[in-house]
Design a protein around this nucleic acid. Structure first.
Lengths: 351, 351
DNA sequence: AAACTTTCCGAAAAGGTTTTCGCCACCCTA
DNA sequence: TAGGGTGGCGAAAACCTTTTCGGAAAGTTT
């Protein structure tokens, strides 16, 4: 039985110091080696009933000997389920995709799913191309991760598999979308500052074209109003998400309102810029003025002097939630809508 | 022919304002709709010969009508090639993996390959688990991306598919490894400073347990020796890859060697710390003292005052090269060894 | 008109696995 | 001993596509 070749493929069976080598080990090889039929081998390996214990061990031993690995393609072909999902991201270097992707990969990994990663680079054509490839590979579902929080076009409502949109919601309300609650994040941040006794609070934030900026600002103003407060200068200061803008805006702010006692920054980078200027201006943080950022990007918050209080958008949790939501959709839960996930304030030394 | 159900599955064919809907469109449905055999439909769609032009268009039209998508699983089963590769990364939040991953994804994407992403989180058990899953899915090859530049254990030499190690080389010299040339990077950086007329150069770098640190330091010393120079203080100053270490080390350096005219930092973060201290000490950069980092992490280099000169390790290029090397290995090129890829100095305002 | 070539198409096998169904042998009971 | 139940196993279909090979029909040449 050993030392023979099979007629169907150029498969070579060798005997080598007790170890058997087969080129492309298939279930048939296992069955042959164990002296049983293919069906029995399958049942034995998959723990199905009606297999004699001794036969089962013999099959397992044979499989181990030739290091048999079941062909997931053939399994998927039969089952109509592949155990794979597609993860389409707007742009990978956008640092917000990464934690979401990590969370999703984590949730899928423990669920025995494999993840196809596709980077569309913000290009609709490339996205369509990747979509087609994923459909061809019969993924069981899709997660679409946006590069900004702004709503994005739907992939289409007539897809044969469920789709979950993460970070950037779909424009189609019947799609399933999971986003970070930026308005709540703004409110939480403002509430934290108010609780710390700050009453002259300024808000320096990024590009007004980003909903993340305007939503957070809205949340801030709502929360301040709850305490009878308004933003210093009357409104949020929009600019860009850079340290440089943080520095320039802070200089201007100090010139216009020297009595400001807290700066809520739209990102950790902006906050870093603000901290730089405050240090140069001789303002003691947090005694004289508090500073706070968003995103809780550890590389910026822990390197800051003093360590920066920030709002974590819980993106990894968002990714995990998206994965779980996709599982539910695969299992038949087709309820759509936008679900907003909470964030959390991470208190360090600047507040 | 329309409006019927097939006996094999619960497939429903409907006629709907000129559009035909089939639940799980298969080649057989296309053939049936076009009034030809399955074989002819396959040939027509794949552009093979011996199909009448009119028949071909009829088949294409039928495929379009029911939005037929060929099943890549079945194709892979026949071809013995799946057109997929696995990308096993040590840890995703390690920011060095991301550009490599982007480069690889880019190269694969244009090559019509789909990428399975697996995050082993630095855990050998999880890595083995993912490896098994990928083998089961019959990927055509693997790329293993390390989280540091330190050599790592081989996945094994008896795998049925080729493996390329990127960033962290394999300990097994017969494996294929692609890494950034850290020693060359150190030399290039030192050469740049020397060319700028600096002669009292210090090197503040990260954890000595990282080969990236020691290799770069070696390259620096070799290049300095070429000009008859040595490091200020006689040797590199090892610490951690943080801004805080950059600050502390710079303070100490200024105290010991006030005449230093260049600080070569092992990372952009360390350089940011150095710049902070120099600014506070009233030293003008780059007039009185030059500063330089490694990694060219744009978020740090462009936010710095002044903008930071840095060495880009070309990680995205490394990822692309790894993908191409894997293609070659899949096509039969089995030559192993460690290949070192060049880096580049990105000059900004601090030198 | 016969023989031949060309053109187009269809039947069937192959790829690896799972599952259903039927068969056989054995054990137990009457 | 006959009948019935059951545990263990194998044959075969099914999933979907590609490819090979043979056959049929049409056109071309002697």
């Amino acid at each position: 039985m050993l030392g023979q070749t099979r007629n169907t493929m150029g498969v070579v069976v060798e005997l080598n110091d007790g170890a058997v080598r087969v080129k492309n080990p298939t279930l048939r090889d296992v069955a042959q080696l164990a002296g049983v039929s293919i069906a029995t081998a399958s049942k034995a390996l998959n723990g199905r009933d009606h297999v004699h214990p001794e036969t089962r061990t013999r099959v397992h031993e044979a499989a181990r000997l030739i290091s048999f690995t079941p062909n997931a393609l053939a399994q998927g072909l039969i089952a109509g389920q592949t155990g794979t999902v597609g993860l389409i991201t707007g742009d990978l270097d956008g640092r917000f995709s990464i934690p979401i992707l990590m969370g999703a990969e984590d949730a899928f990994g423990t669920g025995k799913m494999s993840v196809f990663l596709c980077d569309a680079r913000g290009d609709a054509i490339r996205e369509q191309y990747h979509l087609q490839a994923l459909l061809s590979r019969r993924v069981d579902g899709l997660i679409v991760v946006g590069s900004t929080t702004n709503p994005r076009p739907s992939l289409g409502s007539d897809l044969p598999i469920p789709v979950v949109y993460a970070y950037a919601p779909s424009l189609d309300a019947s799609d399933i979308s999971l986003v970070a609650d930026n308005e709540q994040a703004g409110s939480d941040a403002a509430a934290h500052l108010v609780k710390r006794g700050r009453i002259r609070i300024a808000h320096i934030t990024g590009d007004a074209g980003y909903l993340a900026a305007t939503d957070r600002a809205t949340g801030v103003e709502i929360e301040l109003a709850r305490s009878g407060l308004t933003l210093v200068g009357g409104e949020a200061r929009y600019g860009s998400w850079t340290e440089d803008w943080g520095r320039r805006a802070t200089q201007q702010l100090l010139a216009e309102h020297p009595d400001v006692d807290a700066i809520l920054c739209g990102s950790d980078q902006i906050a870093r810029g603000a901290l730089d200027i405050l240090r140069e201006a001789g303002k003691i943080v947090p005694d004289e003025i508090a500073v706070m950022g968003f995103d809780n990007w550890e590389i910026f918050t822990s390197g800051a002097r003093p360590a920066l209080t920030s709002v974590d958008m819980n993106l990894e949790t968002l990714g995990r939630a998206a994965a779980r939501r996709l599982f539910a959709a695969i299992d038949g839960d087709h309820s759509g809508g936008i679900q907003k996930l909470p964030c959390r304030v991470v208190v360090r030394e600047t507040t």
